[in-house]
């Protein structure tokens, strides 16, 4: 495993000027962001899309529905973040390298349900970033028309909308009490989306950096 970890076998959708590093086989930026508004490339995270009946046993087993998120504490998806990304559509995010286990976990859920449902590993086909900082709602309001007030999009809420004209899943996932959003889109639009977010964030002092342990969507230190 050590040689795989050392040599990059994949690049994320995003590249930024400056040094790069290789973690878990993924080449990502090695820049360090310490400021109050940070954009981190979470491309290496495992991403699965699940489709099935909007209100059946698959939904019950995944534990959440459209517009909400959950972090299962036990069971086959323990440690992952399950996002209700659409009616009858879920996004499962997990730590890099856990793809096989999560895929097997979701498959067992589907098999147990007996419902017509599917799961696809889209890890390499999507872009994922985390935007953290108190000013994130101000930044996002420049590129997204959805009201981000707590009343509308509280911590743990999810929606899909146009962000900088790119169809994007937006997940409010605060980190240690600081506002934070995960943004997920098609890989080919990822660099454009990230550049648009950086452009919109210049006036708030945005910095781009490698993810820290707090940035991991699963909430577990890496």
């Amino acid at each position: 495993m050590s040689d795989i970890a050392a040599a990059p076998i994949a690049r994320t959708a995003l590249s930024f000027p400056g040094p790069v590093r290789t973690t878990d086989g993924w080449e990502t930026t090695a820049r360090h962001a310490a400021g109050g508004l940070r954009l981190a490339d979470l491309g290496p995270l495992v991403k699965l899309t699940v489709r099935g009946p909007a209100d059946g046993s698959v939904r019950a087993a995944l534990g959440t529905s459209f517009g909400h998120t959950v972090r299962p504490r036990g069971g086959p998806l323990a440690g992952a973040l399950v996002v209700g990304s659409g009616p009858g559509e879920w996004l499962v995010l997990g730590a890099p390298g856990t793809g096989g286990e999560l895929l097997a976990g979701v498959r067992s859920i589907i098999a147990d349900s007996g419902e017509f449902a599917s799961v696809v590993d889209v890890t390499h086909g999507r872009a994922l970033v985390r935007l953290t900082g108190a000013d994130t709602p101000l930044l996002l309001s420049k590129v997204c028309a959805v009201d981000l007030a707590d009343r509308v999009v509280p911590d743990g809420a999810a929606f899909r909308s146009s962000v900088a004209r790119v169809v994007t899943d937006v997940v409010r996932d605060d980190v240690d009490g600081t506002r934070s959003y995960l943004l997920h889109c098609e890989r080919s639009s990822g660099q454009y989306l990230a550049d648009s977010l950086v452009d919109a964030g210049i006036e708030y002092g945005i910095e781009v950096g490698a993810p820290t342990e707090h940035d991991d969507a699963t909430g577990h230190p890496r």
Partner: peptide
């Protein structure tokens, strides 16, 4: 010119 029943597709949202 008035009320009409129509179909729309939410391409940037729920895709329904």
């Amino acid at each position: 010119a008035g009320w009409i029943k129509e179909t729309w597709y939410h391409g940037s949202g729920c895709r329904r």
